[in-house]
Computed example of a mutant assay.
Amino acid sequence: MPRQPSHDAGTSSRQLPVILAPHADELLSSWISRHASFYAIPPLGMLRHCLPEVSSLRSADRNLTATQVTRLAGIFSTEPATLRRMTFSNVAPASRRLIAARPLQSCACHSGDHEPRPLLRSQFLGWRITCPLCGDLLERAGGHDRPSPFDRYKG
């Protein structure tokens, strides 16, 4: 007899019918939001469909358990390691408070015509000086007038 997929209360463990490829350095919440846009539902609705216990997209970027990563990887038909690289799990917990709430910087190589435009992990890391994709210096995003303490390292 075939084994039925297990279901947690209120969660679907089935793979989504259409999976959008993640962009290099894309943030998990951005990838989930792009799927939500494709399926014409709110981003938080997409997250809650997969992980009803996670309160926000921001918390998904920062604090997923191994079980949650495995569940999301199954739903989005990807490897757990790929999904973990889309989060800030590699940032030491003591340094996570230094991760910006909104994108701080950008790079010209990321100004493609993707809609919605993916958000990159590097855009939230104020200590990041160069783009992980092309190696060019990152530029401060609009609305951030304060000088960065890392400006002196830019050359």
Rank of each mutant, 00 (worst) to 15 (best):
P2D: 12
R3Y: 09
Q4W: 11
Q4F: 11
P5Q: 08
P5W: 06
S6G: 10
S6A: 11
H7M: 10
A9I: 05
A9H: 08
A9M: 05
A9P: 05
A9F: 06
G10Y: 01
T11K: 09
S12A: 09
S12T: 12
S12G: 13
S13D: 14
Q15M: 10
V18S: 03
L20T: 03
L20H: 02
P22N: 03
H23G: 12
A24I: 13
S30K: 08
S30W: 07
S33P: 07
R34N: 01
Y39Q: 08
A40R: 14
P42S: 11
L44Y: 01
G45L: 02
M46I: 12
M46K: 13
R48N: 01
H49T: 11
C50K: 06
L51F: 05
L51T: 01
P52R: 01
E53F: 05
S56T: 06
L57S: 06
R58P: 10
R58A: 15
R58S: 15
S59L: 14
R62K: 13
N63K: 13
T65N: 02
A66P: 04
A66R: 15
Q68A: 07
R71M: 07
R71E: 07
A73Q: 03
G74Y: 04
G74W: 02
E79K: 14
P80N: 06
T87E: 05
T87R: 06
F88P: 01
S89L: 12
N90C: 12
N90Q: 13
A92Y: 07
R96K: 09
L98C: 09
I99M: 03
R102Q: 11
P103D: 03
S106R: 09
A108V: 13
A108R: 07
C109I: 00
C109S: 00
S111R: 14
S111I: 10
H114K: 10
E115P: 08
E115W: 15
P116N: 11
P116S: 08
R117D: 15
R117G: 11
R117C: 14
P118G: 05
Q123V: 00
Q123R: 02
L125T: 01
W127E: 06
T130H: 09
P132T: 02
L133Y: 05
C134F: 06
C134S: 06
D136V: 04
D136Q: 06
D136A: 03
L137Y: 15
L137S: 13
E139K: 12
R140D: 09
G142A: 07
G142D: 13
G142L: 07
G143I: 01
G143T: 03
G143M: 04
G143Q: 07
D145A: 10
F150Q: 07
Y153I: 01
K154L: 15
G155V: 12
